[in-house]
Design a protein around this nucleic acid. Structure first.
Lengths: 225, 225
DNA sequence: CAAAAACTGATAGTAATACTATTATTTTTG
DNA sequence: CAAAAATAATAGTATTACTATCAGTTTTTG
């Protein structure tokens, strides 16, 4: 898997950047550095000036890659979901039972990212943290509709569609497959955040992965005929 | 209900404001005006200067009520959830069946706010929109833990606890009542946002309230013994 | 009812942010 | 190796998120 993934390069919608960060060393430093910095200081406090200092470059140079820090966040978000989609495609291949495929899909969507597959310059662990804490800021803005037109959320939609299709394979009459899956995706991230910062909004345990268990059970009961 | 609610005044945690906005005309204008403006332009573009202009006052005067626009958002959030808790308390009173209480609770948590009970200067409809689009920004920050210590999220926690207790009344062995309810609360808001801006992440229909139906079904199936 | 206290508005000021523009230098590539 | 492209260095602008000061007005309270 590690080998396999490392040889694939994740393609990001071209509308999101001005110059592809994968196309140069500086670009890669911008991505790696931003993952680091946003994780450390939060998206609000993060600036291109600070990023420039951190990676030994300048504000102006970074602006040649991304129009704004909001676009950079869209980029990271896109990357994360494309990466998740790849993991999903490989993870579900060769599983014939739709129930097993669904189970695996939920696992992939809800489990904690622990190992760093070290996708070159991208630390998936830190990126996962960012997606948990910051990604909703990528769409909860007055520019959603514009960004949506640019295709900034296409990958998420695809992912939701893909898993919804599995649900419909199992129960073709289930009425809310998209709602169910988007509830699981966003919910799982939120529950991880709550577990760390607002534990009374969730149920925690040291044992196994409560979050995955909860959502797996939830989905299978929901779609039961 | 309208009469009843109007006579109650919602008490907000004193740590959140510098001076209680309920204590003066200017304070009330700040709240009413901010609900209006944040709704119109989004939290990011909203500033105290613009608010001052909108309500015929000044930036400096507003800063005497709230330390920052973030604190003002916490205030609006607190107000909304306190209001929801009141609606819940009245709505659930005298219902003896825990199943019926749970059903009503889910309805109150997931339904669209349509009428404006006109709680004096507060437009609940607009406030509901703000909570949908902006409230996650109230906790997805690097200051969560501090704000949590101030008690900024106490009402939400209480609400989750209250509904969890109903679940446990129905099924005392259910393992994830808090996760289930916080998933419903946040999920319902998110689904409304998706329905408006990212419809492929949800399932829509013109007919009845799909969101309430979905979450009601989800919860009852989840807690089945 | 007078003095004190609190409140508000007006104005000014600061450091930082989110950019844009210009030019010089370095690197790439044909 | 020359032309083109990319980057660094620097400067500049409007706006933001505040803080500070002060004077006039209202409210409190002894």
């Amino acid at each position: 898997m590690k080998q396999l993934l490392s040889s694939i390069n994740i393609k990001i919608n071209e509308n999101i950047f001005l110059k592809n960060p994968e196309s140069s060393e500086l670009g890669k430093k911008i991505i790696a550095g931003s993952i680091d910095l946003i994780n450390k200081m939060g998206f609000e406090a993060f600036t291109f000036k600070k990023l420039g200092q951190a990676i030994g470059s300048t504000e102006a140079s970074i602006y040649r890659y991304f129009e704004s820090k909001h676009k950079l966040l869209l980029y990271l978000n896109c990357w994360y979901w494309s990466w998740t989609e790849y993991k999903m495609m490989f993870g579900l291949a060769n599983i014939s039972s739709p129930e097993e495929r669904l189970r695996k899909a939920i696992l992939l969507l809800t489990q904690e990212v622990v190992e760093d597959n070290s996708f070159m310059h991208i630390n998936e662990l830190k990126l996962n943290q960012i997606v948990i804490s910051e990604s909703s800021k990528a769409y909860l803005t007055k520019e959603v509709d514009q960004d949506n037109k640019l295709g900034a959320y296409t990958v998420q939609k695809q992912l939701v569609q893909r898993v919804s299709d599995i649900i419909l394979e199992i129960n073709p009459t289930y009425k809310y497959p998209h709602m169910l899956i988007s509830t699981v995706i966003e919910g799982a991230h939120l529950q991880r955040y709550f577990a760390e910062h607002l534990p009374r909004l969730t149920d925690t345990s040291d044992k196994d992965d409560y979050i995955t268990s909860f959502y797996t059970e939830l989905v299978f009961k929901a779609i039961e005929k």
